[in-house]
């Protein structure tokens, strides 16, 4: 596995006051997404004000971690040096079940590229990436878990 995404030296996020709750939740293997407390709109990536209603009353709330693959690409030629040592890797946008259009970037690491299809149900996983940081990623949902419903 030395040539796959698992071995990539990933840049380490340095959280700000705005983003720290997201990364703190990930350390506890929980996916928390910023949400407007006025109009209930989920926001990712984090912002200072709600793009829908302009409220500044934003807070992080746990989400199910379930979604579907919105789109994907197999990256063969990257400008990020630490990823140039590995073979082609997947970058995907996952649309979370909580809200239409609520998307999150991931690698679907550990998933066979042949199984990566738009619309496929996925669930969150958590990857330690060094210095105590944990990165949310996704994998194909297991059959038992795809029948669940979420708020």
């Amino acid at each position: 596995m030395s040539n796959t995404i698992e071995s990539a030296a990933r840049p380490i996020p340095v959280p700000s006051d705005l983003t720290r709750p997201y990364w703190d939740a990930a350390k506890e293997h929980r996916l928390d997404i910023q949400r407007c407390q006025e109009c209930s709109y989920f926001i990712h990536v984090p912002l200072l004000r709600c793009p829908r209603c302009d409220s500044a009353a934003l807070a992080y709330e746990p989400v199910s971690g379930n979604g579907t693959i919105y789109s994907y690409t197999s990256v063969h030629d990257t400008r990020v040096k630490s990823f140039q040592a590995i073979g082609p890797f997947i970058v995907a946008h996952v649309e979370l079940v909580e809200q239409l259009g609520l998307k999150i970037t991931c690698n679907l690491s550990g998933t066979d590229p042949a199984d990566v299809k738009i619309g496929a149900p996925v669930e969150v996983i958590f990857l330690p990436i060094g210095e105590g940081m944990v990165l949310p990623d996704f994998k194909l949902a297991t059959l038992a878990e795809t029948g669940g419903t979420h708020d």
């Binding site: 990933r10 840049p11 380490i12 700000s16 990364w23 990257t78 630490s82």
Partner: peptide, 29 residues
């Protein structure tokens, strides 16, 4: 356009750890 960050902050926190950077991967989506 090569970059070689070992730390990222701001919006990049949510993309660069996945190697999602630059025009081709994003327009490929």
């Amino acid at each position: 356009g090569n970059i070689d960050p070992d730390r990222v902050t701001g919006n990049d926190e949510f993309t660069l750890p996945y190697g999602a950077y630059g025009g081709p991967p994003l327009l490929a989506l």
